[in-house]
Amino acid sequence: MRPLEAISFQEHGNVATITLNRPAHGNRINIRMIQELAAVCDHLEDRSKAKVVVFRGSGGIFSQGVDFGEFQPHQPIDIHGFNKWEKIAVRLERLPKVTVALIDGAATGGGFHLMLVADQRIATSRSFFQLPEVHMGFLPGMATFRLAKYVGLGTAKRLMLCNTRLSAPQALGLGLLDMVSDDLDAALQSTIESFGPIHTTAVQLCRRLLNESFAIEFEEAIGNFLAAQHRAVNKSAFLDTLARQHEK
């Protein structure tokens, strides 16, 4: 891995933390950041023993979305650039860990989208949330696919089409956030405790089935569930649970 610039990365015990680290640029997502996130994903998938991955921003901002500095006004815009961001977003969504977004300050555009790929979201009371893309003439990425699952179709339309600015309590009320706390580190600790023993296989399979819900037919989903359940019950985590039940 070359030295990290756009993000920083730390691991302490079971917890790995990815911090978006371009505070002078609103922690905006640029190509360098995407490349560094990919390198960190390689590490998390292949080597890391961490069970929890935290996404956060530096300098009192989570992220203000895509960095337009890399778009040239008079050159054709490469749609594959957008795809690079979507690929890293889905990779973060599927990490073999549980993921928590810790938000302080603005989570707008791609920053709003990034928190949707995490398993849990915790924000400080001063944080705010906004999807300005449609008012700027483009689209809020695959948040178009993810957001309605959290808040319902009507609210998703309002947030995207009206550029509604949500406060942290409002976002909590809509189900976008799991907790509002001005002590993010304490809130993270209690969230990590609530995850229990973290059986990675069960977490990944459960998350995948949930992410696939809404989008497919029941007849398709039941086949997926049975395949996933067969995998889960043949792993040592469940076999140990069974053994303990029998001892009682």
Binding site: R94, Q204, L205, R208, G223, N224, L226, A227, A228, H230, R231
Partner: peptide
């Protein structure tokens, strides 16, 4: 068949 394709999807990711 449908079942074995599902099984490979969820076991191999």
């Amino acid at each position: 068949g449908k079942k074995v394709i599902d099984a490979l999807k969820y076991n191999l990711g």
